[in-house]
Amino acid sequence: MSTQKQIDTQIVICGRGGQGVLFLTRLLDESAIMIGSKVISSETHGMAMRGGSVASSVRIGNYESPLIPSGEADILIAVNEHEVPFNMHLMKKDALVFVNSSIRRHNAIHAEKIARLLGSPMVTNLVLLGFASAHAGFPFQYAHINKVLQKISPSKALELNLRALTEGYNLATA
């Protein structure tokens, strides 16, 4: 068990099929359950996964249903920046938005470029999550996610996954 406090947060993760949106969803689910929180999340499968738009929702707290109503999400993690506009209606006014983008702007990081430098664009999602975890408003701290990642990563991918998460975190705190 981590020392983290109980939380009530609703997170949207968006991207395109194949960009690791499902893995991030699972990672956040497990991060929540490790601190003893209730969690319910929703994923996109099937036809939508062939490179099409994909969005997951993660609701941590006392929720019974998996979808986030419009205007109630606290955080958006956009593995693909082109998907941001299609999810903005879900966000609160003061929501935190973390984006993988080559354009320099608030809470943006070119996660894909960093992932490629690390050896694989497949870990773009984790670079972005590491980056987000450095923000004071993010519900899980880097160390906590790191622990969860060690638990759920396939052993073959573990080393690269951890490097990606750490690199994203370091760039945010540098």
Binding site: M47, G51, G52, S53, S70, P85, F86, M88, H89, L90
Partner: peptide, 12 residues
Amino acid sequence: LKQAKAGGQRPS
């Protein structure tokens, strides 16, 4: 409620 923006990438 805020309306969702139509569009998005179609699967291929």
